[in-house]
Amino acid sequence: MEVTLKIFRYNPESGKKPHYEKYTVEAEPTDRVLDLLEYIKGNFDGTLSFRRSCAHGICGSDAMRINGQNRLACKLLVKDLHGAQITVEPILGLRVIKDLIVDMEPFFENYRSVLPYLINDEPAPKKERLQSPEERERFDDTTKCILCACCTTSCPSFWVNEKYVGPAAIVTAHRFIFDSRDRGAAERLKILSGQFGVYRCHTIFNCTTACPREIEVTQAIGEVKKAIGTGSLE
């Protein structure tokens, strides 16, 4: 089948304004959007720039807006787009550096602000910090995050203000807040109850829809909101 890709292009060195360019390629229905981008870069225009690494939905490098929705280019098949034209644009709310590459620093700054690591100053046991299967299950969903930024850059609250920590950072905070081995919940909840914390979430669900790992992002945010409101992790 023949597919036309309409791709957002911007090269700061060319002096040209951002624009769209169209490329028509032969594709199999089972090809991924990333395969088509690689083909265009290899055969039509070597200057086309985008991030990719593992190409298997694990590294989270190739988040982009495909047909108006945040997706991972390596996980999206041509047949699932149901059309002969595919529009590819950079994710929203972050500065575009070149073509489909955005400046991820504000995203990672928000991520770092929620202390994304285990906090426990108690003396370590001889073997390991034991945890029951039920305790592990409590935060299982939020361990799946790959920091692709699909959720955060689909959130209208983040579009309005990049200081809002955003869904990805809250998901990471959730992963540690509800971990029975962690002792930093109070500190994280204090950070998240601030001006740019969880209360900027208006339960819009764009994050849940956009997540390529199918994390129940809105539910995780809701649980953090409840923990702040009740002061309890139950």
């Binding site: 911007y10 929203l92 575009v96 209208p156």
Partner: peptide
């Protein structure tokens, strides 16, 4: 130089589906 952060009307065009429409 990177493009300035500018969402504007592009945000309205985001295809969030029913839940985003309800929010709007």
């Amino acid at each position: 130089m990177a493009l300035k952060r500018n969402v504007g009307l592009k945000g309205i065009k985001y295809r969030g589906g029913g839940p985003m429409l309800a929010w709007a």
